[in-house]
Amino acid sequence: MSGFQLNAVPVLSRTTLDRAEHLRADEQALKEGWAQAKLLRMNRRGQVLVDGGSVALEAAITLSAEPAADAVFLGVDGEIHLWAVRDNDIEGTLSDLRAAGATLNLDDFGTGLLSTAIALLNWHDKARYSATDGTPTAVTNGGWSRTSEAGHEEFPRIDPAVICLVHDGGDRVLLGRQHTWPEGLFSLLAGFVETGESLERCVERELREEVGVDVTDIRYLGSQPWPFPRSLMLGFSAVADPEQELTFHDGEIAEAHWFTRAEVRAALAAGEWGAARTESRLLLPGSISIARTIVESWAAQD
Rank of each mutant, 00 (worst) to 15 (best):
A275K: 10
G3R: 01
I218F: 08
G286C: 00
V72F: 05
D108K: 02
A150P: 13
A238D: 02
G134K: 00
L174Q: 02
S115D: 07
E204G: 05
S115Y: 00
A190I: 13
A25S: 11
G52T: 08
G142N: 03
V239N: 04
H124S: 03
G92P: 09
H124K: 05
L106Q: 11
L49E: 11
T140I: 11
W226F: 15
A138K: 07
A102V: 15
E66V: 09
R292G: 10
V215M: 05
W144I: 02
W83K: 06
W181H: 10
D77I: 00
E194G: 15
G196F: 02
K38S: 09
S13I: 01
P225V: 06
E194I: 13
Q5F: 03
D96Y: 14
T293I: 09
C164E: 08
P285E: 02
R208P: 00
P67L: 08
L12F: 09
A29Y: 04
P242V: 14
A291K: 10
E66L: 12
G169W: 01
S2F: 04
W226E: 15
F155G: 00
F186H: 08
L185N: 13
S289W: 14
G235Y: 07
W181Y: 12
S54H: 13
A84W: 07
V55N: 08
L246V: 08
K31G: 08
L106S: 13
L284Q: 05
R14W: 05
W273N: 02
R19E: 12
L82I: 10
D159W: 04
A117C: 14
V85T: 07
L94V: 02
L30T: 09
G112R: 02
V55W: 12
S289M: 10
A238S: 05
C202R: 01
E154G: 13
I294S: 03
E279Q: 10
K31M: 11
R44C: 14
L104V: 03
W144S: 01
R265C: 07
A138S: 14
E194H: 13
F228A: 11
D51F: 02
E149M: 12
Y129V: 15
W123Q: 06
R146L: 09
E79G: 09
G101N: 03
V72G: 05
V239I: 15
S115K: 13
R19C: 05
I61M: 03
E183M: 11
D168A: 01
T132C: 06
A276I: 15
